Amino acid sequence: MKKLIPAFLAVLLFASYQDLCKKLPKKVLNLKAIEKCSGMNVIINANTSSQAEIVYVYKNKRIEAIVVQGTFAIQYLPLISQNISITTESSKIYTDKINDKKAFITRDLYTNEEQIVIVVDQKIPKLIIIHSKNLNEKEAKKAAKEISIKF
């Protein structure tokens, strides 16, 4: 019984993927969601996680937005907490702020793909992962701002 109480409290603190989906916008920049938001809720012993994802498309531009909360988000926190700046001829990797939240950004300079990971909450670990294709850096950051402001 003692193990059930912490597990029950952990479940109360976390939003379900359905709740996370409600916060994700239907449109980002001029890209529209092409499918319904989907996700999963996971409880393993006292560890609780939820993940919601949605895809936005306009012509050749694509954004995949994933909101991760709980145990699944913890793995990213040590990396994002560092100040990083790495530039090679093929990529840029750096930390930045988006809506006053810490972000870890990787950009492939050849394929024009970018991944932005934004820490929304460290206490109840929650982050947003945005993978963009065929958006320039400015557009990708603007999309990240539009999505993360909802959280």
Results as ranks from 00 to 15, higher is better:
129 I>P: 02
103 A>V: 01
9 L>Y: 15
46 A>Y: 14
85 S>L: 06
149 I>G: 04
73 A>C: 03
114 E>R: 10
144 A>D: 01
129 I>R: 08
47 N>S: 15
117 V>M: 10
149 I>T: 13
15 A>I: 08
7 A>N: 12
117 V>D: 11
7 A>V: 11
135 L>W: 00
107 R>E: 12
27 K>H: 03
30 N>K: 04
39 G>I: 08
71 T>W: 12
71 T>E: 14
70 G>V: 10
125 P>Q: 07
150 K>R: 10
146 E>D: 09
94 Y>K: 02
28 V>S: 09
67 V>N: 09
117 V>G: 04
133 K>I: 06
17 Y>M: 10
20 L>A: 09
67 V>A: 14
78 P>F: 11
74 I>K: 14
35 E>P: 03
24 L>Q: 08
81 S>F: 10
111 T>E: 15
68 V>R: 08
97 K>L: 14
68 V>N: 02
101 K>H: 11
140 A>Q: 02
4 L>H: 15
142 K>T: 08
142 K>R: 10
109 L>V: 02
56 Y>G: 01
134 N>L: 03
83 N>I: 05
92 K>W: 06
117 V>T: 09
84 I>Y: 06
82 Q>K: 12
64 E>D: 07
41 N>P: 05
70 G>D: 01
80 I>H: 07
86 I>R: 14
131 H>C: 03
148 S>N: 13
13 L>I: 08
133 K>S: 06
58 Y>E: 12
7 A>C: 06
12 L>H: 12
148 S>R: 03
79 L>V: 11
54 I>Y: 04
32 K>G: 02
147 I>Q: 05
61 K>E: 06
112 N>F: 12
130 I>N: 04
86 I>Y: 14
11 V>D: 07
113 E>H: 07
59 K>I: 01
108 D>P: 04
63 I>W: 00
59 K>R: 13
143 A>M: 03
96 D>E: 15
116 I>L: 00
128 I>G: 00
114 E>Y: 04
33 A>I: 10
12 L>W: 15
57 V>W: 06
9 L>G: 10
11 V>F: 14
67 V>S: 14
71 T>C: 00
151 F>G: 03
96 D>M: 11
146 E>A: 00
76 Y>L: 03
6 P>D: 14
71 T>L: 13
40 M>G: 14
118 I>L: 10
44 I>H: 13
138 K>F: 00
30 N>P: 01
97 K>P: 06
24 L>H: 04
70 G>I: 11
77 L>Q: 03
84 I>L: 09
51 Q>R: 07
73 A>D: 04
81 S>A: 09
84 I>S: 05
121 D>W: 05
75 Q>W: 11
89 E>P: 10
71 T>V: 10
43 I>G: 07
61 K>W: 00
50 S>T: 05
138 K>G: 04
14 F>R: 07
63 I>E: 01
131 H>I: 02
60 N>L: 08
108 D>A: 06
111 T>I: 08
127 L>T: 01
126 K>E: 10
35 E>K: 15
150 K>F: 01
33 A>C: 07
114 E>P: 04
123 K>E: 13
41 N>Y: 01
18 Q>H: 13
11 V>W: 12
27 K>S: 08
